[in-house]
């Protein structure tokens, strides 16, 4: 299991701004180690953000997204004290879901 994500969600007026920092190697599959063997690709493929059971952002990523990926986005609605849930799946089938309370 990967390390937890850092999620910050702030309600400003009727818009909620969400910032997510995930902990993941995001290995491209193109790099070689000291012995010259290729390091296999390992990266997050799918990301979904939900609020109140409704998807507010979904993404497909390739290995070109930087290590320890960062995403920020805004959606309408969302009140203080409610929760935003972020989940990702990587190409090894590993998953992680974290939630944050809107501040």
């Amino acid at each position: 299991m990967a390390d937890p994500m850092k999620i910050r969600a702030n309600a400003v007026g009727d818009v909620t701004e969400v910032k997510v920092l995930m902990s993941h190697e995001m290995e491209t599959g193109l790099r070689k180690d000291a012995q010259g063997t290729t390091i296999p690709a390992w990266f997050i493929q799918n990301v979904t953000a939900t609020y109140n059971g409704k998807t507010v952002l979904s993404a497909q990523w390739g290995p070109a997204v930087a290590k320890n990926p960062f995403v920020s986005f805004k959606f309408k609605g969302g009140a203080k004290g409610e929760k935003v849930m972020i989940s990702w799946t990587d190409n090894r089938g590993d998953k992680r879901t974290d939630e944050a309370t809107i501040a």
Partner: peptide, 12 residues
């Protein structure tokens, strides 16, 4: 309902 504006970080 989601704003068409976002940011992320990539490798180049």
């Amino acid at each position: 309902g989601t704003e068409s504006s976002l940011s992320t970080r990539v490798k180049m």
